[in-house]
């Protein structure tokens, strides 16, 4: 059981927003830039102060300590940031991830981060996040910098991960066709509010 429920999330320019993601399901989220999608995800991951409650499997977020919560509720932003020189340093216990699933060569692990392309960084950031075994995935345009083949690989990887861990996913994309492929239901966010759903 991995369900995420958010009630009356509210911050400046955002909300009140309530949403629920059932165990193992994926909700697609789209809407104009600056509409509050990223802001909502940051609130769900508890990165910005806000009002409202967030529950994981019925347990309130405050009963988890902050780092526990963020390991459970993994947020992936469109742009990834790296704090150490080499890629491998960013993985827990320098444990190499399964690179072939995203068509990455093992060479990248020893490469300085700044030498990687934005597409390589984005795929590595996803692997970096999945290595944490999150139970909720908040994905903010996870395929924005990728070519067609790699978009497909990322979608497959996330679908497999979701099935294996019955993880719930909130997927932000500007590509409606992608959301049709990956999600069971869709929401639209405009001016900080969720406006109806198409599915």
């Amino acid at each position: 059981m991995n369900s995420l429920r958010a009630q009356n999330i509210q911050a400046t320019g955002l909300g009140p927003v309530s949403l629920e993601i059932e165990t193992g399901s994926c909700v697609g989220l789209s809407g104009p830039s600056g509409g509050g999608k990223t802001r909502l995800m940051r609130c769900l991951a508890d990165l910005d102060p806000h009002q409202g409650t967030v529950l994981f499997n019925g347990t309130s977020r405050e009963s988890f300590n902050p780092s526990q919560w963020r390991s459970k509720v993994g947020l992936l932003l469109a742009e990834s940031f790296w704090w150490s020189e080499k890629v491998l340093d960013h993985f827990a216990n320098r444990h190499a991830p399964a690179l072939e699933s995203l068509n990455l060569s093992p060479v990248v692990l020893e490469q300085p981060v700044r030498q990687l392309s934005s597409g390589q960084r984005q795929r590595l950031a996803l692997l970096r996040l999945l290595a944490n075994h999150p139970e909720v995935l908040l994905l903010d345009e996870p395929t924005a910098n990728l070519d067609h083949d790699n978009i497909e690989r990322v979608e497959t990887l996330i679908a497999n991960y979701r099935a294996q861990h019955s993880c719930c996913v909130l997927w932000v994309s500007h590509d409606g066709k992608q959301l049709d492929r990956v999600s069971e239901s869709q929401l639209i966010m405009t001016n900080g509010r969720l406006q109806g759903s198409v599915s």
Partner: peptide
């Protein structure tokens, strides 16, 4: 900021 928050997002302690 982004680097610090990237670590927080991965469950690192502040």
């Amino acid at each position: 900021r982004e680097i610090i928050e990237a670590r927080l997002m991965l469950g690192h302690r502040a």
